[in-house]
Amino acid sequence: MKLSMPAIANPRSRLQGFSLNNRRSRTLLLIALCLVVLGVLLLGTYLIGQAGLDIALSSRNQPPSFAHPFGTDWLGRDMFSRTLHGLSLSLWIGLLTASVSAVIALAIGTLSATLGGKVDAAITWLIDVALSLPHLVLIILVAFAAGGGVRGLLLAIIITHWMSLARLLRAEVLQLKSSDYVQLSSKLGRSPLWIARHHLLPHLLPQFLVGLILLFPHAILHEAGLTFLGLGLPPEIPAIGIILSESMRYLSAGYWWLAVLPGVVLLMAVQAFDILGQSVRALLDPKTSQG
């Protein structure tokens, strides 16, 4: 008989089975790819610095070339650098708003389920009402009410993105609370705090993580959308939404690259988050982690 070694003690053994025929390996590879793409988009600007953002009127409106893969704009600025800068900014805003929103969802969802009664009824009502309103209208209203600008944008996105996740987490807690094993745990003498720590939290955290990752693309798209409409970030902050909205004016002039290429990169980033979320879910959920 072999001595049983804890798997942690030898991290290499965990990667021994890596091959592309292994579904779990493929999922991990996908996650790693997404992380690399997102990492580049988030941190790329630190590598390339301010180069390419200078106005160079001699090389205005050039189509994509080796020197300028995304072409140049009406002021001769390199569109590739601008896209990276704009996207990086948008991603950071997305990360910030989605994280705050997810934490709100966690707090409200678990509180609603644990307190129950009137509090639960009130919160459920609020969630239902908020979800029944058209999303974009709600965001615009909140952004206006908060006075617009950066603060308005952040508040609007934070306030309008926690509901679905809160509802999901509330349902999870409710289901867990009424499950045989949680009820039995308290009959075996475990305190509510112990149960929360050992039964609830380990179950909720993966759900929370996946929910958080899947919130990012929403937050980013809405930030870009709001900014595109002129309600979000001011024009002097070069977020992706600004770039897109400015570029639209030049579409009719035949300068397609100004809008199309940054748009495609934005879609790629959003898609990367989506794939990341789905893959993490597939790994963490015991129901699909075997399949």
Binding site: S179, D180, Y181, L184, K187, L188, G189, H198, H199
Partner: peptide, 17 residues
């Protein structure tokens, strides 16, 4: 605290984390 009356359910798989 621990209850002096314990219950064993019909479906053990639901009674375990």
């Amino acid at each position: 605290g621990s209850c002096p009356v314990q219950l064993v359910f019909q479906h053990p798989e639901l009674a375990m984390n």
